[in-house]
Design a protein around this nucleic acid. Structure first.
Length: 245
DNA sequence: TGCCATGTTAAACT
DNA sequence: GAGTTTAACATGGC
């Protein structure tokens, strides 16, 4: 559920319902102060990477769904689950569970750099390229999961992008030719929007070319499955078709 | 049925 | 103190 596009879908569902409504009460266990939010208008619901942003004029609440996060509209009826955050409006409520919630005393654009978000209109290819230049020793599989470079990219997107641009996940960022770096950056954005479309159409898994695959669709040799990188995440790749730099 | 995972953080280790 | 490992969250799919 929780890579960038999945959060984007949540935003698309919640925005038309709650945007413009006035917050009347804040509940839940999260460390979110009620005073600066109460009676303030929810002026927008946005995303930054894998986070959902609830914005008032002066403040921002960020919600990260981690692995199992859930939200519900109007129904807060599961006593087994601890309420992390509840927002009550004149009409209707919004509840979040099993997620990480942070409060910022600043507007969203001052906290999050839209240019680092692969799904944002302001996404900057030049900035991404520069950040990659600064980490020449990193493995590309780590760099793609780095939320300060590719906010929104998760493990599925990582696997699919590397396979599609034929770069081996254990390549060192600094050794990848500039042309391939450009392809990597472009494909990260392009596939992320494919992911969004396919997720909406419920055809995500059937379009995977690398993730969970046993055989390479290009050369028919078995795919490798290893737990790679700093965070030892599941990585599927073809030794034959993905070049190691 | 049991295990594992689209993720991150903080605590508990070495 | 730095770096590394583990636990926690708690659901759904295989």
């Amino acid at each position: 559920m929780p890579e960038g596009p999945s959060i984007y879908i949540i935003k698309e569902e919640l925005r038309p319902i709650f945007k413009g409504r006035t917050i009347r009460a804040v509940t839940g266990k999260a460390n979110v102060p009620e005073q600066p939010l109460k009676d303030q208008k929810l002026i927008d619901i946005k995303t930054f990477g894998k986070q959902l942003l609830l914005c008032t004029r002066d403040c921002t609440i960020s919600i990260h769904f981690l692995m199992f996060g859930v939200y519900s509209i109007d129904k807060n009826d599961k006593p087994t689950r601890q309420l992390k955050l509840g927002l009550k409006f004149n009409k209707g409520s919004l509840y979040f569970y099993t997620c990480s919630v942070k409060f910022f005393d600043q507007p969203a654009d001052e906290v999050f750099d839209a240019e680092a978000d692969v799904m944002n209109k302001k996404w900057s290819v030049a900035k991404a390229r520069k950040k990659l230049k600064d980490v020449p020793g990193e493995l590309v599989c780590d760099a793609l999961l780095d939320q300060s470079i590719f906010a929104g990219v998760g493990n599925i997107i990582k696997n699919e992008v590397l396979y599609r641009v034929r770069i081996h996940p254990e390549s060192k960022v600094g050794k990848i030719p500039a042309r391939k770096i450009t392809a990597l950056i472009k494909e990260s954005v392009r596939y992320t929007f494919d992911f969004l479309k396919q997720k909406k159409a419920d055809t995500l898994a059937e379009n995977w070319q690398a993730y969970t695959k046993k055989k390479c669709g290009r050369c028919d040799l078995p795919m490798k499955k290893k737990y790679l990188g700093k965070t030892k995440r599941r990585t599927f790749y073809c030794d034959n078709c993905q070049e190691k730099y």
